[in-house]
């Protein structure tokens, strides 16, 4: 394991994975994944299409059941818990493709974000919603609009805002830059950094290595379900990302299974 870390805010591990294996049916996707995320850290996992990034986040969230291995939140075992129990413990996911409730209003989407906190002590949902509106003022203007009618960027803001309503201890983000113009991505990533500076721990999964590493403290490269490289974000950025990326993985396409175009991984001469 590479010891270099850009800015380690703290050393106490929030999320800990050991020897994680998971897959679909008989097909193994995650092969022996180890990962530590410290409190206040931004860790990113980069990898090409189909390398298993979404599967990793789904496994942490309890959507995919692990075959073997350890998932711990501050020492508490998460393996075997239902999806809703994992959220209730503060591991909250912003899923790939945003997955908003399209026919429901912006406000209703946010209210549903706080569903896992209902009946629990903590800040009232209305206060949290105010905070989300402060982070993303555009959502406030559109709070009575159906989520499906938002622009792509606004939808991603809503997806992040909805997850924040659950008062996450660790926020899992699956390709938040997907399909968005660079300027919008910058805006959202600025907000993510701000959230991190207030103490939120982030685990970010991205195909776009450059933008992910510009935000993260630490990066891991995933290839065919394995972590093949790990380093501080600055050193990964400084290294020739293209050779890291294409040295192993081989071909990738810019189109996801559902036909959406993806944001290019590495823009030439950018």
């Amino acid at each position: 394991m590479n010891a270099f870390v850009d800015t380690p805010p703290s050393h106490d591990t929030v999320l800990r994975l050991r020897g994680l294996r998971a897959g679909y049916g008989a097909v193994e996707v995650l092969r022996d994944v180890d990962l530590d995320v410290a409190h206040g850290e931004i860790v990113t996992i980069i990898g090409v299409n189909g390398s298993g990034k979404s599967t990793l986040l789904k496994t942490i969230s309890g959507v995919v059941k692990p075959w073997e291995g350890v998932i711990e939140l501050k020492g508490e075992n998460l393996v075997g818990l239902g999806v809703e129990q994992v959220v209730a413990r503060g591991v909250v996911q912003v899923p790939e493709g945003r997955q908003l409730f399209g026919p429901l209003t912006v406000q209703e989407n946010l209210e549903l974000g706080s569903y896992s906190r209902r009946g629990k002590r903590g800040r009232p949902a209305a206060d949290k919603m105010e905070e989300v509106f402060e982070l993303f003022p555009r959502l406030q203007e559109r709070r009575l609009q159906h989520a499906a009618t938002l622009s792509g960027g606004e939808q991603q803001m809503l997806a992040v805002g909805r997850a924040l309503m659950a008062e996450p201890r660790v926020l899992l983000l699956d390709e938040p830059s997907m399909g968005l113009a660079p300027l919008v991505v910058k805006e959202i990533f600025r907000t993510l950094r701000e959230l991190n500076e207030r103490g939120l721990t982030l685990l970010l999964v991205e195909q776009d290595a450059r933008i992910a590493l510009s935000l993260a403290h630490r990066g891991l490269v995933m290839e065919r379900g394995r972590i093949v490289m790990e380093d501080g974000a600055a050193s990964l950025l400084a290294a020739d990302i293209q050779s890291i990326y294409f040295g192993h993985g081989g071909g990738r396409t810019d189109v996801t299974e559902d036909g959406h175009e993806k944001y290019p991984v590495v823009r030439e001469g950018d």
């Binding site: 959507v63 999806v83 959220v87 899923p95 429901l104 909805r162």
Partner: peptide, 23 residues
């Protein structure tokens, strides 16, 4: 009601609703 909204959310996108903690 929040429960009623959760039912509607499930109708639209069961996976996302589960990720919000809806059973």
């Amino acid at each position: 009601t929040l429960t009623g909204k959760a039912v509607r959310a499930c109708a639209v996108n069961p996976l996302a609703a589960r990720l919000m903690g809806v059973s």
